[in-house]
């Protein structure tokens, strides 16, 4: 078991012929992901990698294939339209890797998502992976190994850091999700915490947050009220200055709100196990599991 994706997930890639899209679609295929179709405007009726049919639009692809999830590499200026296209096509899982989507575009996307049955991951994220089964994203596949920890994160490489430790320490992972580094994202931590709580194979969840917004505070309230499984938390940005955007569009302390100390305080109060630095994440998971 795992959440959202497994070896039977049929994946579509939007922007499959672009530089990023083709590179990562290739890597996903090598990992074993079932990519069944690609979409790029005006590239219909061609093949990607001599095997994956490319269509002009999702509508065409859907006539011929069952699609469970889409991975979006469409450039920032067109990405919101790509997401809406996927929502209209009723694709259950939408994973948007694209960075740099205007925030007002994302507000519209979010409003459309709320009226749909689709779940969205990202944008500005590494994607989702169920170890040894299905990789929809840009994360290095080899660091993942099937195990018992679910991972959620607003960051990319910092997630790999955590995953690497979990794998090397023998804990392994069920599913890992980068939820995205933008101020407005498809789904908050809570959406996935709920799924991990119901997944019998997941024994603990690592939640990696950062400065900006209040997503971690809300997630920790949820953990306190709804979860039996231990959640291990880390927050990046204790030394970040106020008012500066730390790489991710969403990582900013504004009007004195969204500081690391504020988040850690609330998380600790709500029973999250805190890892003081990224090097002790696996160690903290072990501690939590042995309690």
């Amino acid at each position: 078991m795992s959440i959202l994706v497994n070896k039977n997930t049929n994946v579509l890639v939007q922007g499959i012929t672009g530089k990023e899209g083709s590179f990562h679609a290739q890597k996903c295929l090598e990992y074993g992901t079932k990519i069944v179709a690609g979409v790029t405007p005006f590239k219909g009726n061609t093949l990607f990698n001599d095997s994956v049919p490319v269509y002009n639009a999702i509508k065409e692809a859907k006539k011929e294939r069952r699609i469970d999830a889409t991975m979006i590499f469409v450039p920032a200026g067109f990405a919101a339209a790509g997401i809406i296209e996927a929502i209209e096509a009723e694709i259950p899982l939408i994973v948007c890797i694209t960075e740099g989507i205007p925030v007002l575009d994302m507000l519209n996307v979010k409003a459309a998502l709320n009226c749909s049955g689709s779940t969205m991951i990202g944008p500005n994220c590494p994607g989702i992976i169920t170890a040894d089964e299905c990789k929809i994203g840009i994360m290095p596949g080899f660091i993942h190994k099937k195990g018992k920890v679910g991972v959620l994160s607003r960051s990319g490489t910092l997630t790999y850091e955590a995953v690497n430790q979990l794998t090397e320490g023998g804990l392994g992972e069920t599913t890992c999700i980068g939820i995205g580094g933008d101020p407005i994202i498809g789904s908050p931590f809570i959406t996935f915490l709920k799924m991990f709580e119901n997944d019998p194979e997941t024994k603990a969840v690592v939640m990696i947050g950062e400065i900006g917004g209040t997503a971690e505070e809300e997630a920790s309230e949820f953990v306190k009220n709804n979860m039996k499984k231990p959640v291990i938390g880390f927050i990046a940005g204790k030394t970040a200055p106020a008012g500066k955007r730390m790489g991710h569009a969403g990582a900013i302390i504004s009007g004195g709100k969204g500081t690391a100390s504020e988040k850690l305080k609330t998380m600790e109060k709500n029973g999250i196990y805190i890892a003081d630095n990224p090097s002790v994440i696996a160690e903290t998971v072990n501690k939590a599991l042995n309690e």
């Binding site: 960051s155 990319g156 910092l158 850091e161 950062e210 880390f234 790489g247 991710h248 990224p278």
Partner: peptide, 10 residues
């Protein structure tokens, strides 16, 4: 990576 960069500073 931005998250790792912040975590490194911390």
């Amino acid at each position: 990576g931005a998250g790792l960069a912040m975590a490194t500073m911390d």
